[in-house]
Nucleic acid binder design. Structure first.
Lengths: 221, 221
DNA sequence: TGATCCACGTCAGCAATTTGTCAGGTTGAT
DNA sequence: ATCAACCTGACAAATTGCTGACGTGGATCA
């Protein structure tokens, strides 16, 4: 999953970015409001982590402009501790959650999982599709209850597909969210990756929609 | 909107209940875990406000049982416990949001609005015409309930025609929207394509309006 | 430092599908 | 009847995706 991190404090930004990458996300970081607005408005992220205290355009203003433009991406805002008025403003401006500074990185990750799964319409942080179960908190994937070891790229692929189960996901979209770069389809690396995942998790988990992309059927009644 | 409030402290419960009613909600209040679980499992609420510190069955256990039973109702957790680890637990157990005590009633209302807003709108876009049904999310087309495999061009043709069902669509328009190029009609590729779709989905789905274009009759009551 | 393993990209070959073209055949309006 | 519009079956070319094999670079450990 691809995230946008908006944080002007370089030190905090670096720390958070490292933790997010370790948790398996593809992360892009910007340090000011204008850049944040542009990226959030033109690119497609799984979620955005937005610091309110920004130089230049204020974080709240950025968020409002995104929402005004119809962007529904989940947004987690970082706020100074204590001011409930600011929190209420943030939530009513369209934030999906807030986290007061300073925070534990574990809580950031949990809240991130929360808003991401909420935006996908899930209620639990475990996702089941056919014989396969994904536990995001433990970064664990099981096949008929048996744990399966996946490489980082394989895990990201599975996680993204399960989050978007029930709909066709294009190769371009997978490129962006698994690798981070959205371009150069001069290679079949993605197809090879899909093949490797199929070998581990069974051939019927991921269906091919020739000419369109891939689909993990939704098995939720 | 109908809410369930789960809070064992009668005094807090009464205050919150009054505020919620003032904000226009219909509120039902219960004071222990068992009752909460039963109500939440059998009734249909717009959202549930759940205190974690309950006598009897713990709030977290209640929440987990709801989620295990497939209840996706938005849940807002209240707790006095401040440790980040327990907050992480609550969120990962499937809570949609979390509010630490003590809280301002304004913030409760804002978060409530937020989770309710989020839970709305996850319907998959479907179009029905005669015996044919189009599910755009899954890019799936079914004929009398039986899935039919369509090629990319065939799918685009069907999708466009169903989107504009009830009116005649010219060949030029189809050329532009299926192929992209609105080129000269020097080939009969489009006619061949229509023929292939008819073979798969039945001859009566697409009517020919000789000299004008094609028509999918609107069968919406 | 060197041996080893693993993740992952690349490549070539293959099989299946897709799709444009074309050569008649039908249909319907006038 | 005539003619343009449209349909159909067949075929070949192009596209797409899968697979096994191989190579490279980084991490780990003796």
């Amino acid at each position: 999953m691809r995230l946008l991190l908006v944080e002007d404090d370089r030190r905090i930004a670096a720390d958070v970015e490292r933790a997010l990458r370790a948790a398996g996300y593809v992360v892009e970081t910007v340090h000011n409001g204008e850049e944040a607005w542009f990226r959030g408005d033109t690119e497609d992220y799984g979620a955005i982590i937005l610091d309110l205290g920004l130089p230049g355009m204020d974080g709240l203003a950025v968020l409002k402009r995104w929402r005004a433009n119809g962007r529904t991406v989940p947004v987690l805002i970082l706020t100074a501790r204590g001011s409930w008025a600011e929190r209420v403003d943030g939530i009513d401006a369209g934030a999906d959650d807030y986290l007061p500074k300073p925070f534990r990185i574990e809580e950031l990750l949990a809240r991130l999982r929360s808003i991401v799964r909420r935006s996908a319409g899930h209620a639990s942080s475990r996702i089941v599709a056919g014989d396969v179960e994904l536990d995001e908190r433990q970064m664990k994937v099981t096949l008929r209850g048996v744990p399966v070891a996946l490489s980082p790229l394989e895990y990201r692929l599975v996680a993204f597909l399960l989050h978007h189960r029930g709909r066709v996901v294009s190769q371009q979209e997978l490129d962006e969210n698994v690798y981070g770069h959205g371009e150069d389809h001069e290679s079949n690396a993605l197809e090879v990756l899909v093949g490797r995942v199929r070998k581990k998790l069974g051939a019927d988990l991921i269906e091919t929609r020739r000419g369109f992309g891939y689909l993990v059927p939704d098995t939720t009644p």
